[in-house]
Write a protein that binds this DNA or RNA. Structure first.
Length: 261
DNA sequence: ATGACATATGAGATATGA
């Protein structure tokens, strides 16, 4: 089965792009982030007409996550524990039937955290702690689990064209990278690195500004983390760079993995 | 040093993003 993640940067602005991509790539499950709309405004019908079930956790103007799936979601969770007053819609998770049993998938939009030294950065770090605590619980289920999304973390210098330009940025600060490592080191596999090793130039985001795409001045911040039971079934992982050549593209491109049925 | 560029809100200019 094929599982994808993509930060669309507004689902309303990107609806035609998303439909074209789904028609081309035909994932069984697609995690979307940065919807920038409330649940009632999500264009669900367009995806349902393509055969997808739709679950969303939306918010006006900012954030928002969704999962599209060819099988019916069960055990849906919206949001993370730990901050009851947290109004930011950044996490949705469900379990999906597949040919070889159930697969649990989460769509994650981790806080950006800039500028460092502000509440935004401490919120990012707290959110990462909450995600890690939840992931620790999920791992005890010993089931195929896929944590996919925009993590807003550049894991290593290999994941940026110009890492020196990111010094001091919340995406690359040691605290952010350390918390990402702590999550991975619970026992997750970074699907792209598992398949491509230390290959350079694997990016998922290019700024709209300063010709970043044309110069391939990108960063890898969209990640697919696999539990051991999911990693056992990994047969492929790729970054869909050509999606950046769409008309009015998102500044992110999809990451897609294949799991053996 | 700043802005570039894109989107949402809402009707001009500001907030957010990464």
């Amino acid at each position: 089965m094929k599982i994808a993640t993509w930060n669309v940067n507004s689902i309303k602005a990107r609806l035609e792009n998303a439909l074209a991509w789904l028609k081309q790539d035909d994932p069984d499950i697609a995690c979307l982030q940065e919807l920038k709309c409330e649940d009632h405004a999500f264009p669900a019908a367009a995806f349902e007409e393509m055969g997808y079930n739709v679950i969303t956790h939306g918010q006006k103007s900012y954030n928002g996550v969704a999962i599209l799936s060819k099988t019916r979601p069960e055990d849906v969770r919206r949001g993370l524990d730990g901050e009851e007053e947290d109004a930011q819609a950044r996490y949705i998770e469900a379990v999906f039937p597949s040919a070889s049993g159930m697969v649990r998938v989460a769509s994650i939009y981790l806080p950006n955290g800039n500028p460092a030294g502000t509440d935004k950065f401490t919120y990012k770090l707290r959110w990462m702690d909450r995600l890690t605590a939840h992931a620790r619980k999920l791992l005890t289920l010993e089931e195929p689990l896929v944590l996919a999304g925009d993590y807003n973390v550049i894991p290593t210098p290999l994941d940026a064209k110009t890492p020196e330009a990111w010094t001091g940025d919340a995406l690359f600060l040691p605290e952010s990278r350390a918390k990402f490592r702590s999550l991975v080191n619970l026992g997750f596999t970074d699907a792209i690195r598992q398949v491509h090793g230390d290959a350079p130039g694997l990016y998922t985001f290019w700024d709209y500004q300063a010709g970043a795409w044309q110069r391939n001045n990108g960063i890898r911040i969209d990640h697919v983390l696999l539990s051991p039971q999911a990693a056992d079934r990994l047969t492929g992982a790729r970054i869909e760079r050509e999606v950046r050549t769409q008309e009015r593209p998102s500044d992110h491109v999809p990451v897609v993995i294949d799991l053996r049925d």
